[in-house]
Amino acid sequence: MNVLTDNISTYWKGFLGTVELTVYASILALVLGFVMASFRVAPVGSFRALGTAWVTVLRNTPLTLLFFAVLLGLPRFGLVLPFTVFAVLALGCYTSAFICEALRSGINTVPKGQGEAARSLGMTFSQTLTTIILPQAFRSVIPPVGSTLIALAKNSAIAGAFSVTELLGTYKTLSELGYNIIWTFVWIALGYLVITLAISAVFNILEKRWGVAR
């Protein structure tokens, strides 16, 4: 127990670091994922190709490798930013590929007739997508998007290896101070649990409010 009470400020800083990474990377992932999903169902071929390439590259790269590429690669091209920003970029772009695919599977659950009816009334592609298809797709993508964001919260631990302050990284400081490693990790795990359960709670509310009625 005294692992936590003695080092509450170290834990708190790490916890806040993880929350920060999760929130910013989630926002980036949702925005990019939305844009890429629209691209992937667009009637214009070059947009579809761009969306497909984005998903293929990012979904198939190991996240650690992506961190290396962003944190060590981008500075070589003259782009020097704080490591936290780089970590948000890597996490956000990586997760956006999964969000994109979740959204696209949601779009596919909307019956074809909905789009046909909208088009037969003279609505354009973008009107059909934004007023008819996406609002209905949204209901069925709440659970998979929630899971993806929970995965993002846990993936943020990789940033600790690149000297970004976050929850998992606190174990190094504490084990150097000679604290029991098992209890150190128990408290870290509980910290992650608080974050992931909070995300679950938010998505449960969203689902109650907007989810598909059965």
């Binding site: 007739g113 909905q114 009816a117 037969s120 009334l121 209905q136």
Partner: peptide
């Protein structure tokens, strides 16, 4: 040109 479908296709939401 209006169209009426077999499966109605009213906007469900």
């Amino acid at each position: 040109v209006g169209m009426v479908f077999q499966s109605f296709n009213l906007f469900a939401h």
